[in-house]
Amino acid sequence: MISAFFAIVRRDLILAVRLRAEAVNPVFFFILVVTLFPLGIGAETKLLQTMATGIIWVSALRAAMLSLDSLFRSDFDDGSLEQLLLSPHPLTILVFAKIIAHWLVTGLPLLIVAPLLAVFLGLPQQALGTLLITLVLVTPVLSLIGSIGVALTVGLRRGGMILSLLVLPLYVPVLIFASNAVAMAGNGYAVDAQINILIAILLLSVVLAPLPAAAALKMSMS
């Protein structure tokens, strides 16, 4: 079972390396959306500074959202998803492996870009550390919760819009706690409470999210 888990992670990573464009696109999208905000609301430093956390988090959410489709899409199209379903290992574990690989490919790059963009928007120095910690905690949650939505809509021809409708409301708690933590850290307050809650949400979704995702995949393939 463990070897199957790592085999899937390895396979998905190799695929991502071979198809670099797909992995890079969400990052570009993220940078682009963040760049659009100063153009839209004006380049006033003070205004941007107060909105920086919100801009970064909402854009990160959208970028994660857009990258979700690649989680099961190609496997669904070429039939390897059916092979996964037929394998003797529990589907939950296999789905979890796919989510981990997806996070490594699409979540981690956001970690590298986000602090850079934060500096562009004038986020206070002392908030950068918190931004990184919250990103480490939240991006896996985005992949985990998102996997449920993708699994439900993978069989649909035009699932994109519905996917956002399904998944974005579920992203609300992490958005609240993460952006609040960064904003508080920027003002010099302690953010232990928010970080602890984010850890709790992460653990909860690691345990719970793969179950409905696997059930939904079975539904989509039937």
Binding site: T153, G155, M219
Partner: peptide, 29 residues
């Protein structure tokens, strides 16, 4: 929004038996 998501997911899946299952999973989540 959660309700609307359920309604639109049900509408999008053609086979109503799998649509029901999908919607049930979503409602539980």
């Amino acid at each position: 929004f959660l309700y609307l998501g359920i309604i639109s997911l049900y509408g999008a899946i053609e086979d109503k038996r799998s649509a029901s299952r999908a919607v049930s999973i979503l409602a539980l989540v």
